[in-house]
Nucleic acid binder design. Sequence first.
DNA 1: CCTTGACCTTGACGTAACGTCAACCTTTAC
DNA 2: GTAAAGGTTGACGTTACGTCAAGGTCAAGG
Lengths: 258, 258
Amino acid sequence: MEWSIQEIAKIAGTTSRTLRHYDDIGLLKPSSTGHNGYRYYSQSALVQLQRILLLRELGLGLPVIAQVLDREQDTAEALHGHLGWLEQEQNRLGRQIASVRRTIKAVEGGENLMAEEILDGFDHTRYKDEVEERWGKDAYAMGDAWWRGMGQDEKQAWKQRAQKLGSDWIAAAKAGIAPDSEAAQELAERHVEWLQDIPGTPAAANGQNGVNSGDIKGYVTGLGDMYVADPRFGANYGGTEGAMFVRDSLRIYAELNL
Amino acid sequence: MEWSIQEIAKIAGTTSRTLRHYDDIGLLKPSSTGHNGYRYYSQSALVQLQRILLLRELGLGLPVIAQVLDREQDTAEALHGHLGWLEQEQNRLGRQIASVRRTIKAVEGGENLMAEEILDGFDHTRYKDEVEERWGKDAYAMGDAWWRGMGQDEKQAWKQRAQKLGSDWIAAAKAGIAPDSEAAQELAERHVEWLQDIPGTPAAANGQNGVNSGDIKGYVTGLGDMYVADPRFGANYGGTEGAMFVRDSLRIYAELNL
DNA sequence: CCTTGACCTTGACGTAACGTCAACCTTTAC
DNA sequence: GTAAAGGTTGACGTTACGTCAAGGTCAAGG
């Protein structure tokens, strides 16, 4: 018994285009071809097709399905791997949903979505890439959620605090004092305390992150290096020169106190 | 203050390619262009970019973002709509995950993924399209889960039952008895009882589906029509002739008893 | 024999949002 | 002068087909 392309398509609940596609990519060849080029499919081809469609409904990609059918990969193994990916996706969606909900609340609360003022002084989203690269996506996500979850006045306060810290650093650097001087070390202490108020980072006082507290030292010195290497951060501390002063002060503070 | 394309890319945490893309599709034009064709972006463009990236991270499509930025659509409204889509997706993923888990269990339990034997007599996946079209996606999903959740012997029993029912129908039709005869009505009763054992359909005895029991009558007569109209179903009852006999018997039974 | 309609074929564009060369021009720094 | 860095405009690749487009094949009817 052989069926034409439309017939198996109907039987299996798919379209003839899909069949041609599977033929093109070599996933499922017709069991015979007429002299006129017509594709004909046998019972065994139908079984294969059903398998393909079953796996496809589970979300597997066609290349993976091909491997499974060619016995190049164990079915259960492939499904396990796929399951992991699916769960990751679901988590991602969950986080995204939470973010959207927060944003809706913020917007409906009258907050202008990322107003100009956010730019001057402190803009946390600028650091997205660095943060994600160094401490993982979750770190940024937590910081991001924390930031957007704050009220207008809280944000204002935070920015003022950051700006004050920055200007104090610049003043200290201009004054030519040493990084290991008492004044500089006091600033370093303020800086670390400030960092500890950002959730999701290794420095966060409450250990809600998976990072153990032993990382704080490396985190702080790493930050110092970043301030110097990246002009966007350095700009907050009076350019590269100021950033170097901050870095040295922080390193010394970290060595002595963390 | 103006920035080159790489500079804002870095500041905003994206790539120059993305900026060019946004320029191409008209989502974000550079605030000025040099005589050499270089793109330059101002502070306000940066703000727009940040807004775009924020919305993009929330999963909105670029066309929607464009509408929001052009004030053609309310931000909160767009986010609400998007939220609905996200939740749908999450649900879909959840169902898919459950399906994959069941399939893994089946495969690891030694069941050959859709073996040949499934084809003869009864293959529920053949009816996917019809079931989904007539009674919704959930109906098929539930029936599907139910089928794959059964053990090998249970499936065997089910198929035997289906096949016995089919052959009895064929025999009755061949015997030339009337659809309203006692023998035919007994068969119709068996048929309905059989249908009631398939979860997710309007006929299911336990009302786990959102369908009210008043639909059973329409469901049964509708099925009869389908048997006649679709040769795949009719084949189970001895072709179109037999299917017509089944349809008439079922219709009479439904009128009298449902 | 011719037409009509149903079904088949291959070929090619479109989809979302860019990543990734390729080929070529500018600016900056040494 | 030249090399490095950065800019420009194409154009292809990505996933799994949907959707024409142009044209050949086959069974039935006038």
